[in-house]
Design a protein around this nucleic acid. Structure first.
Lengths: 146, 146
DNA sequence: TATTGACCTAAAGTCAGGTTCAGGTGTTAG
DNA sequence: CTAACACCTGAACCTGACTTTAGGTCAATA
């Protein structure tokens, strides 16, 4: 059993945030002894799941919904699986999006390297948008897709 | 030259957002004819850069700063290059983070598949945290790193 | 001529996700 | 005994990124 301060230190999360999560119902079965929150292994695991779902882009309200499903037992296994499948698809999509952004950024890094060498952007402007060196053109084109 | 409505349609961005960006100084040299904004190729390119920097996680104020550097000419090539290098590192880090999240989500998908088959979590609980099938253990461990 | 549609502004409103504040309780250290 | 600490609450506040509202201009169409 841990106090809120210990959990805050373990996870590197502000105490105020843990209280906020509790207020929002993210720890549906948390115990208290004389008013003081008692974080058990259960709550630590819940916190790990909260962090995972948050990183996946899920909002607090939907996380609360998920936590409620967990408290409802085996009847909600299907709903929970469905949620994780959706989150997985969302994160896969976001990674693909970030890979494009990354190619755009790699292109920009190359661009300014050239601009610094040349002292101006004249030569670069003459290469845009489709007369870039082959490997740079690949970055540029991927970064500019849809 | 395009009107704000045409640009909104081309980019799939609300008009209100384009006006907001303008208000925030993201199009430092935009022309107007009798009060009406005129988006040229320059502003379209700026909008592409704005979208790229936004996706990289940069806030509006820093994007404004970058746009100002662009208006200052070749003296700021170094600053601009540095910004893109930092954004590149940030996005690379975020992708690594999302790959971990993804492994956690893949584990959870497998977990609920098993739970649905078994009708309960008893067998799963006996396998946690280190007696999982080899390939699942890999997901679990990677997903739980720092 | 009137009304429709696309543009404009300043200011207020919204939402998520916290953080801060003011005031209070309970246990331990000097 | 009292002061420091770690905990508690409800309510107000904050930031970022927009969106909405209310009121106004102007050109073209019915």
């Amino acid at each position: 059993m841990y106090t809120i301060g210990q959990v805050a230190d373990m996870f590197g999360i502000p105490i105020s945030t843990l209280r906020y999560y509790d207020r929002e119902g993210l720890f549906p079965d948390m115990q208290r002894s004389s008013g003081i929150r008692r974080f058990s292994e259960k709550e630590l695991n819940e916190l790990r799941v909260i962090e995972c779902l948050k990183k996946s882009g899920l909002g607090i309200k939907s996380i609360k919904q998920f936590m409620e499903w967990c408290s409802e037992g085996s009847e909600t296994y299907g709903l929970r699986q469905e949620l994780f499948l959706k989150r997985k698809a969302a994160v896969e999509g976001e990674i693909r999006q970030l890979e494009k952004t990354l190619d755009m950024l790699r292109f920009k890094c190359w661009y300014y390297e050239q601009a610094i060498q040349d002292g101006n952007e004249d030569r670069l402007n003459r290469m845009l948008p489709d007369k870039l060196p082959k490997e740079i053109q690949v970055l540029y084109d991927h970064g500019h897709e849809t």
